[in-house]
Amino acid sequence: MSALNNAIDILRCFSSARPDLSFADVQALTGKPKSSTSRLLRSLRDCGLLEQDRHTRRYRPGLLTFELGRLHRAHDDLIALVERELREVCARTGHTGYIAVLDGYQQVVLRIVPGSNPLRVVNPPGQRTPAIITSNGRAMLARLSDEEVRKRVPVEYPKVPHNSPQNFAELIARLNEIRLTGVSDAADEAIEGVASQGFAVASGETGELVGVAVSYSVHTTEAERAHVRRELAATADKLRRITGDPLAQAADLRTGTAS
């Protein structure tokens, strides 16, 4: 880790006030030996994190840092957009909403939008749950190919609640149903007594995938579930069009509304 930490120390030397630096500048700012500074600068340049002006020999952040920063900004913009729309849904339905992303076969909660109803199920940000047992987790997995899903799910299939897909074949069958209907729901799975509905949206620019869900009691009436389903379907459609999600483009092609 020392080499990585030293490289990070060099990258931290750059700022809006110091957009480019000489070898001597970097050595003075970091206080590192001449030999290791030279080696690290060369490595950072070769991998694209830094660029070196061929005339002045000064270093500046490279294209890779720009691309990473752009992805980070796009990520923040996407999450903020999704959260804004989810807040509207939660305000209209009174139920709690979640925003999550995939990490392997698990989903990680990023944001929570509390509802006004007495039942407020809260999975704190950062909590990990197998995506195969949640509505928004399965919605995200359904956006991947079967082969991509197989690579994510452990060979030794995880032990899951009885209402969840019990093996890989059942999981693929459930994902195919989501792909066909656009509806992803769960009940008595991640949390006993709790049901949810979810969808996934992907950025057409970065391909980033985000899962959205609204949760409520398993005893919620069918009429209320239908209300939530309509709210989520409308929100999913709106978000996909705003973000350039390939699903929205495919839907336009099917209906002949593509420009």
Results as ranks from 00 to 15, higher is better:
C13D: 12
F14D: 01
P19K: 06
D20E: 04
D20Y: 06
F23L: 09
A24R: 15
Q27E: 12
G31N: 11
K34F: 11
R39L: 14
L41Y: 09
R45V: 08
L49S: 06
L50C: 07
T56S: 15
R57K: 12
T65R: 15
E67Y: 14
G69T: 13
H75E: 04
H75L: 03
H75D: 03
H75A: 03
V82N: 03
E85F: 02
R87K: 12
V89Y: 10
A91S: 11
R92F: 05
T93F: 07
G94H: 09
G97T: 01
I99D: 00
D103K: 02
Q107W: 02
L110I: 09
V113T: 06
S116Q: 11
R120C: 05
P124G: 00
P125D: 00
G126W: 06
A131L: 00
I132T: 13
T134Y: 04
E147G: 03
E147W: 01
R150T: 01
R152W: 06
V153I: 13
K159V: 15
P165Y: 12
E170Y: 09
E170D: 12
I178M: 06
R179K: 11
T181M: 05
D185P: 00
A186G: 10
V194I: 15
V194L: 06
S196K: 04
E205C: 05
G207F: 07
G211N: 05
V212G: 01
V214Q: 09
E222Y: 10
H227I: 05
L232V: 06
A234P: 09
G244H: 12
L253I: 13
R254Y: 09
T255V: 04
